[in-house]
């Protein structure tokens, strides 16, 4: 049975749909990455799937329930979200930010329960940010901040975890680190993970499934081994690449072809 399912989903903003006719499903514990060029509709898709957009048609179901009929509170019990752009207007500390992830588990006037504290410690250990707890969020590096926001999403304690380009703004070592944390969450905690990504090589070893998005439409869905081909990359990204095998993972990997400059 599918934990999460989209059927003929179209969505967008005031001036029309950006993504059209998207259908796919996620089983419990799966890791899927959405790949596509800038402007292909990745962020729109990840928002629409959680009911954050108003202009939608089609169906999205989580645990067989229609997401467009659920209250934000009910959706937040199923899906946690790490957005691509973090805004933080005031000087909240790391601990305060992670506490916000417990919102749905607390009463409006209620304080922090022992379960809350336990969960918060657990997610800080998982993401290795315990030493940063008193720091103000604005004083952290990009990688640290990304881990804090992942920890906040984990504190929400949901079966599904959605991340919008978790590797953007990060340097190479942090990119790998973030994906390793995600993989561990999938393996150890049984989380179902949905990410959008434009770094193809980064997504390949971690995802069971990838989905190519182009011009707001699904081009292909399947395991990376099958989908990562010269022709598909050309079709989706308009880029000429070679495909080779990564010597460690034995999985396909793309390498860019540098064209010599054309003479005028």
């Amino acid at each position: 049975m599918a934990l999460f399912e989209a059927k003929n989903l179209s969505a967008g903003y005031e001036n029309g749909f950006v993504i059209e006719n998207i259908s796919f499903s996620l089983k419990e514990g799966e890791f899927i990455s959405i790949l596509g060029r800038n402007g292909s509709g990745k962020s729109t898709l990840i928002k629409a799937l959680q009911g954050l957009l108003k202009n939608v048609s089609g169906q999205v179901r989580v645990d067989e329930k229609n997401i467009f009929l659920l209250k934000s509170r009910q959706i937040a019990k199923k899906i946690a979200y790490v957005p691509q752009i973090f805004s933080y207007s005031f000087e909240f500390s790391v601990l305060e930010i992670i506490h916000m992830g417990r919102y749905i588990h607390q009463g409006r006037l209620g304080g922090t329960s022992s379960l809350d504290s336990r969960k918060i410690e657990e997610v800080m250990n998982l993401t290795e940010i315990s030493h940063l707890r008193e720091k103000k969020i604005a004083h952290l590096s990009g990688g640290e901040r990304q881990r804090v926001f992942i920890a906040r999403a984990l504190a929400q304690d949901t079966p599904l975890l959605f991340l919008d380009e978790p590797s953007s703004h990060l340097d190479i070592s942090y990119q790998v680190e973030i994906y390793q944390i995600l993989k561990r969450l999938q393996k150890e905690k049984g989380k179902t993970i949905f990410t959008t990504e434009h770094n193809i090589n980064l997504a390949i070893p971690y995802s069971e499934k990838i989905m190519f998005l182009k011009g707001g439409k699904v081009q292909a869905v399947g395991p990376p081994k099958k989908l990562i081909t010269r022709e598909n990359i050309k079709k989706v990204f308009q880029a000429d690449v070679e495909i080779r095998e990564n010597i460690h993972s034995r999985l396909p990997e793309i390498s860019l072809i540098h064209k010599p400059e054309e003479k005028a």
């Binding site: 928002k47 959680q50 954050l52 209250k71 934000s72 509170r73 959706i75 937040a76 019990k77 899906i79 946690a80 979200y81 957005p83 752009i85 973090f86 805004s87 933080y88 207007s89 005031f90 909240f92 305060e96 930010i97 916000m100 992830g101 919102y103 749905i104 607390q106 409006r108 006037l109 929400q156």
Partner: peptide, 24 residues
């Protein structure tokens, strides 16, 4: 005071606040 926690969530941006369960 009743909605103080919700106001805290708004500091993360409306979409994030909503994804955390706040009726923004």
């Amino acid at each position: 005071q009743w909605l103080a926690k919700d106001m805290n969530l708004l500091a993360l941006g409306d979409e994030t606040a909503q994804s955390l369960g706040c009726p923004v």
